[in-house]
Design a binder for these strands. Structure first.
Length: 259
DNA sequence: ATGGTGGCGGTGCCA
């Protein structure tokens, strides 16, 4: 069972790249972020033609998240609990009917939070606190849970090309890392770093200033696994190939394989 | 030091 996260930076621009990656990688589930489209604008038929179902929360121009799955999807939440006034399309959670039993997944698009400090950074920290509270409740299910997405969090200095120059960035600041660690410390396993403790790889490269060519990247797309999922973890990789193709997203897919 | 790119929507905002 293969579960991936992929920030597509516009599903309309990237549906071709997504479908190619579905062919190449054959994931069971892909958690998408930054659809940048309303629900009716999402090219669902193209994705369904590849043998996948789609559930999504859309929004005009910004945000937008989806769950793409070969297996039946039962949506549980269309927003992150904890603030009904938050109208950003940044969270969708569902049960996936896997042959071996249900797996709970969420596609998360955390706020970027720049500039920091500021209102946007405060919103990011509030969002992280809401995610902490909800992630804690999910552990009570005692089933495999995969919380995947664009966390907009650089967990440690090893996860960014220039830790000194970016130290004050909203993705790197100590409060950000602390709020993220607090979630992990509830009992979640970050799949990539757990399997590759010292490997330097990134999941995002800015479009500007030749960041991709210089490998000036950031590792900000993560898969957090509940104990029941972590016990089944076999592999986790960052697939750089889509980022290197023409008209690529600025992010590339991260996937994990569970027994 | 600055500006560098891309997406949306039709102007600046967001990343």
């Amino acid at each position: 069972m293969k579960i991936a996260t992929f920030n597509v930076n516009s599903i309309r621009r990237r549906v071709g790249a997504l479908c190619q990656w579905l062919d190449d990688a054959a994931p069971d589930v892909v958690l998408l972020q930054e659809l940048k489209a309303q629900a009716e604008q999402v090219p669902i038929l193209e994705i369904e033609a590849k043998g996948y179902r789609v559930e999504l929360v859309g929004q005009k121009a910004y945000n937008g998240v989806a769950i793409v799955s070969r297996h039946p999807i039962t949506v549980i939440h269309r927003a992150l609990p904890g603030d009904t006034a938050d109208e950003h399309a940044r969270y969708i959670e569902a049960d996936i009917a896997m042959p071996g039993g249900p797996v709970r997944v969420a596609s998360i698009y955390l706020p970027n939070g720049n500039p920091a400090p500021g209102d946007k950074y405060d919103y990011k920290l509030r969002f992280l606190n809401r995610l902490y509270a909800h992630a804690r409740e999910l552990l009570e299910l005692e089933i495999p849970v995969v919380l995947g997405g664009d966390y907009n969090v650089v967990p440690a200095d090893i996860d960014v090309h220039d830790p000194v120059g970016t130290a004050d960035d909203a993705l790197c600041r100590p409060e950000t890392r602390q709020a993220y660690r607090r979630i992990v410390n509830l009992g979640y396993t970050e799949a990539y770093r757990t399997l590759h403790p010292n490997r330097i790889e990134y999941s995002f490269w800015d479009y500007q200033a030749g960041a991709w060519q210089k490998n000036d990247g950031w590792r900000i797309d993560h898969l957090l696994l509940s104990p029941q999922a972590a016990d089944r973890l076999l592999a986790c990789e960052i697939d750089r190939d889509p980022r290197g193709r023409p008209e690529a997203s600025d992010h590339t897919p991260v996937w994990c394989q569970l027994r």
